[in-house]
Design a protein around this nucleic acid. Sequence first.
DNA 1: ATCATTCTGTACTGACAGGTACAATGCATT
DNA 2: AATGCATTGTACCTGTCAGTACAGAATGAT
Lengths: 187, 187
Amino acid sequence: MSALRTLYERADVVPLLAEIFRELGFEGATLSRITERTGIGKGSLYHFFPGGKEEMAAAVLAEVDTWFEQFVYEPLRRDDPAEAIAAMWKNADAYFRSGGRICLVGAFALDETRERFAATINGYFRRWIDALAGALVRSGRPASEATAAAENAVLGIQGALVLSRALDDKALFKRALDQMAKRLITS
Amino acid sequence: MSALRTLYERADVVPLLAEIFRELGFEGATLSRITERTGIGKGSLYHFFPGGKEEMAAAVLAEVDTWFEQFVYEPLRRDDPAEAIAAMWKNADAYFRSGGRICLVGAFALDETRERFAATINGYFRRWIDALAGALVRSGRPASEATAAAENAVLGIQGALVLSRALDDKALFKRALDQMAKRLITS
DNA sequence: ATCATTCTGTACTGACAGGTACAATGCATT
DNA sequence: AATGCATTGTACCTGTCAGTACAGAATGAT
């Protein structure tokens, strides 16, 4: 492994694929568009992902999941609730680039792509909601409200992504996130 | 025009296309899957929509837009604000079948399909937010809060669709809508 | 019954889809 | 510098894509 290597590793390819699936969706991301945008030939692609496009998407989803598990869900379960929740909003804004980048998991949930990755999609959101609800309970919120409040926050991020992209308005995304952050701790 | 006619009219085809685009997305909705699911042959399809798939999707979006204009936006602008807002939540729940049916406009906003229909997508959400914010102002809400509150409601519906579909949980959709409805008038 | 028009099924096209085969290359180790 | 394995480009496969052509069936008006 050297800094100047021209050859790829599987780990280098996944982030590139992620951006392409985000922009084009699963069906829109054709092999030729992938090779065109990444400069990686079919040979390499099928070497790293023998299962083809489906394995590529699965690898991307797994990486997304790992990222959220590490930087959002785990802290919510482990750290001081108020701090972890504040970090969640910050991380969400950074990860989604203030609405400039969509949530691949949410996008896959909307069309028939969901069927292929149902378990992964479900787990991603389920664990987010549960971790956040847990943090809310630990911060003193009654358990009866915590789940609904957590669902509301997670759903709000997804909605903010849709709307800010629809209106091509990043400011809306930040504004919505700020408001949700306030509401989550006060109400 | 007779009740027993076996031949289609353009107006008959659009709702069928709508469901297909909703389920499969723009890229996923291939001509053969359209003919397969609707039973309408290519001949008829290209007769009604000489511009092909893009014209089909545009027709669907236009119909969606018309529906919301008539049953949501216009009432919000015209009728008693409290009543129109209550009707909006009811209509949203019915139209999206408690999360069993996604918002095509929102789904198109997420991937590159947005580029094709940017103006329509923007207008759909822009007019929704403006009409709702206007109703809120007329109901006594300060203009400084109205827009943000309206954005929040619209984005919340989109997010609820994503999340309820991701978790395959219609109850979540209804619960989220109820909560948003309460928050919109109280807070 | 005729006729012009609207509508429809079938067959076709060239382009491109996902995927495979494999020879050639790059690189770390020795 | 030779070996062995990871990586890559190219050519190719079969199926499906969006779109076209067009003959014929159904329709409404006369």
